[in-house]
Amino acid sequence: MAGTGAGYDLSVTTFSPDGRVFQVEYAGKAVENSGTTLAICCKDGVVFAAEKFLLSKMLVHGTAKRIFPVHRRAGMSIAGMVADARQIVSRARSEATQFMNAYCEEIPPELLAERLGLFMHAYTLYWSVRPFGCTALLGCVDEETKKPSLFCIEPNGMVYKYTATAEGKGKQAAKTEIEKVLANNPELTCEQALMLVAKIIHKVHDEKDKDFELEISWICPASNYEHAQVPVEQRKAAEAEAERILEAEQEDD
């Protein structure tokens, strides 16, 4: 019975005497160890960004992704164990297609998020399974109204709707940065956000960690309101600009 839980941390089906389920809380810890990911609901769409650590110099660029398409107008970025998250992505895709098949309509973002919440919650109820060690940021743009929306689905099954949020190692710093950005420019567009997002991820990156690759995708007019990777040239330009500004800021200090 090592550790703090006195045995209460061994199963998701047992509460501790003070009413906590430790395994679910530990799943939250798995999320906090991961590289930062963030998503912003802009005026005209959603931007996702993820800091992907390069585990090997020989890893092929653009593989082992952390941002996934869910359906044509929805994407999902992951903080935590990506292997776990793939179950959620696959569930999200099947929910979306099933809804489409039954009702001939795209699934409303709220509903998709809520269903994924139920799915993740179900894994906190049974002795024989373990909770998901990841948090998903689900971003959608409505088919008709083109209204963007963003949800955060946590390992305990809770679903929150955000205008912008961040998860992972640098989530606190990243959230503060995003708040500043949105305070200065509430009418931010996705194109404008690109550089700012790159800047935030670079800024919150811990030098002690391994090198990282920046993953950015969006759902906005530039991608014809479909979930797509930001074109490489555009991403590199944004990243270069971000690094230039960051260096300038550091020199000022």
Partner: peptide
């Protein structure tokens, strides 16, 4: 996956 038995399709 086996633990959570849900209908795959709502029409099921």
């Amino acid at each position: 996956m086996a633990a959570v038995e849900e209908p795959q399709d709502y029409l099921d």
